[in-house]
Nucleic acid binder design. Structure first.
Lengths: 201, 201
DNA sequence: TGTACATCAGTGAACGCGCGTTCACTGATGTAC
DNA sequence: TGTACATCAGTGAACGCGCGTTCACTGATGTAC
């Protein structure tokens, strides 16, 4: 009946959402245009509205998909102390230097808070699930107010990553990440397996 | 010789920078236009280039002025435990609900990291001075790696404020601020004078 | 199996709009004499 | 003190450009018979 199957259409939509995620996190929600996103997906601008009602609609879908992807990554962490691994990988130079495939909160949070209710609702739901995934990594006994503590720790790590990306002094940036690890581990009540190093003074 | 005195011109420039600060923090760097900023300052768009070489030039001036203003606010804090007051006022509902006159890091950090080197340099210099001002509030003995620890704490608080602004659930937002206070105080090695309350569970 | 048809994802040009920036012009002012 | 002049902050229209969105059209496909 249709030119393509339903699977083909949903695969295309998914591809647009993924590429848009990269572009939004690299250039920001405002600076990344629909035409560029569609071009990334190998399509032309006009096809956009066969998949989304508006750019805001895409942004909401991207926020949901990005947080879902992050949740899956968290759930996949293994090892003796997966929560400690999470903190160390999150606040690593590799993550700082690769925003395109990194944390959506670090890249987009303060544009999200200037966005529509639909987008902020999508963020709220998604970040709750991220917090629950992190809670799943923490052994018992969990601290009181655990859910909010975990979210506040995620927010703190996201802010640290943002600042580490914004400053132009590489030594300062590295020092921020190191201190951020210590702060996040303490916030989660994790005794570090390896000491947090100090290269600054 | 000139139509107006040098004082008049620099006062006008200062007024533009201040109003731009409010507008940038409310709407973001990309979404706030030159015409709107000039209108806020009681001028028309054309006069902008008598004061700034470009919009990026204005953004850099705004970043510098905003951080300088924040530094002055920090230096003005008094009381027995001024650093604890700083944390509690920073992570207060009042600050969350008034981004226009609030912290530039919380409002702009992840647009700054996508900006020009001039703007990122201005941010780097300004935030260092903010950290020094906070160090001035902390009594001896200061923790090792104090400067970077203070900056990481500021970054953590900024991220927490961003998330508290982005989520659409007011209870979650309040809980984030409360847990953020506990995390920031612990990061700075401050024993709270009043306990950090838990309204969540 | 072969053919005519209906579907609709995708094309690409065009829309109005607001952006950052430019520019010819204005007119209130301080200075020169 | 009075007057002619030079200055330049500020005006307001216009520039090219990229944005989000619309739309007439295309053409490969699955379905009907």
């Amino acid at each position: 009946m249709a030119r393509y199957t339903a699977e083909h259409k949903s695969a295309t939509r998914q591809r647009i959402v993924e590429r848009a995620g990269h572009r939004f996190k690299t250039h920001g929600l405002s600076r990344a245009g629909v035409t560029a996103v569609m071009s990334d997906a190998g399509l032309t601008n006009g096809a956009f509205y066969a998949h989304f009602a508006s750019k805001d609609d895409l942004v909401a879908a991207v926020v949901t998909e990005q947080l879902d992807r992050q949740r899956n990554w968290i759930a996949s962490l293994t090892g003796r102390k997966p929560a400690e691994s999470l903190v160390r990988e999150y606040l690593s130079p590799a993550h700082r230097d690769d925003p395109a495939s990194g944390c959506p909160s670090a890249a987009l949070l303060d544009e999200i808070d200037k966005s529509t209710g639909q987008i902020r609702d999508a963020y709220t739901a998604g970040i709750r699930d991220v917090a629950d995934a992190i809670l799943g990594l923490l052994g018992e006994p969990r601290p009181e107010a655990a859910h909010a503590t975990v979210l506040a720790t995620v927010a703190a790590m996201a802010g640290t990553l943002q600042m580490a990306r914004a400053v132009t002094d590489p030594d300062l940036s590295d020092a921020l990440l190191e201190r951020g690890v210590a702060i996040a581990l303490a916030a989660l009540g994790i005794e570090p397996m390896q000491p947090v190093t100090h290269t600054d003074h």
